[in-house]
Design a protein around this nucleic acid. Sequence first.
DNA 1: GACTCAAACTGACCCAGGTTAAGGATTTCC
DNA 2: GGAAATCCTTAACCTGGGTCAGTTTGAGTC
Lengths: 257, 257
Amino acid sequence: MSEPISRMTMHNVGGADGGRLDIFLRKLLGQCRLSTIDQQHLLALPFQLRDLPAQASILHEGDSARVCPILLSGFAYRYKIAADGGRQIVSLRIPGDPLDFQSLYLQTIDHHMQALTPVSLALVPLPALEQLAEARPSIARAILVDILIEASIGREWQLNIGRRHALPRLAHFLCEFVYRMQLIFAHSSDEIEVPITQEQLADILGLTPVHVNRTLKTIEQAGAVVRKGRRLYTRDVAALAQLADFTPLYLHRDNAN
Amino acid sequence: MSEPISRMTMHNVGGADGGRLDIFLRKLLGQCRLSTIDQQHLLALPFQLRDLPAQASILHEGDSARVCPILLSGFAYRYKIAADGGRQIVSLRIPGDPLDFQSLYLQTIDHHMQALTPVSLALVPLPALEQLAEARPSIARAILVDILIEASIGREWQLNIGRRHALPRLAHFLCEFVYRMQLIFAHSSDEIEVPITQEQLADILGLTPVHVNRTLKTIEQAGAVVRKGRRLYTRDVAALAQLADFTPLYLHRDNAN
DNA sequence: GACTCAAACTGACCCAGGTTAAGGATTTCC
DNA sequence: GGAAATCCTTAACCTGGGTCAGTTTGAGTC
């Protein structure tokens, strides 16, 4: 595995190409309001495009970041490792999501981040983002709101891991995944591919791959998901929500209104 | 149980009494630097003092806050409830900690908060805090840093609940508790009272009270904690850290330097 | 110093999910 | 299109921690 992004320095930061950052703007607009001027400033941010293969390291614990990666396409996850080698995925990031706002304010990265699928990233130099946040309070606020919503999702995951059995736990995660995907891609179909291996699902849920497999079978028999070949698709979100005791309040989708 | 603080409106906000907020300032200074002027502004914040008994409700899911409570003494915790009644404590707050910076930026509270022991709170009107954060960027930054460090602790709890067995899990929590207490109270003794019942420990750790009891017995036999009557005291932090696979990086104690 | 109530403790039993160890199916890559 | 790698699947067995059903020990309180 090559050098993580968090160890990179930037050369040749190209001129802005607003079209690429469009999905990032849409993501922020789903969480808080921004004036037309703020939107233009965001789209005008300088960045370098970077494509990475699945499994590539994006952040490394202990590093200090110099760029803020934004996920233009593909999926990525934060994780931590226990002394016995156990891995816990603590956050899943989907297209449009900023990956490391935290390093604007904290010196040291406290977890790892990896590409789940092939990804393309916009690497925004931290100083550019810092200056923008200082100059425009509502952009600073948008950053904060994203940080807070991710933290809220983290608390829901704590409840999920600590207090729900395997079946509702898995269903809850899948349900959240669909909700978030629908919000950013603005489509309403229940059928979404979940590009996550059973081993990774296990590390999200605090289970073993074997038990994820068993549980997935049950959920498929209930008609809530389908598997085709090696791929997993959600099928019936209402069924998932019912299995899961799912309430979307913690996603704060009302905050943009 | 009476009305939660998050449903309160404020009357008679007294003149500032900086001495009371001193512990709050100390807490923030442990996480980031602040100029003398910033410090004076913080101490000059208007607030109303409020003493509450143990178990009192402080925040209620679904509410919108009008005040930001700051914990001057005592302990409090955030928690969430699953459909089957299971409770997960997602955050423990200790003296000096702000309890709801989140409501500066999000409309709806996504979890509950309760007093663990009798507490005294300084209730700061949200508008006063908002104005201060807007006027002084380094205070806005201090707020953000606190939010980020709490989120980092939450991620460590996810790892703890999802991937550590009962014994290291409990030891890890106790170790973190001592570290945080030592930071705010600036004393170096290993012997600290942990004012948390076994049932509450269970809800922090995603275990049952019965198993917390068993595990506590083991940890006591290892000499890492002592119990006197109904009270629990830490005794040997190095032993706890070793049982727990504890690394304090995620507390970001270096960030103030 | 008895009465009350919450919290701590204990033992017997049980089960959800872990472990181990295969084999089988897809995908990827020469 | 064959080899290699990765991922999925299943079965048999095991165990960490849950459940149930008590008893005991404080700590207030009058």
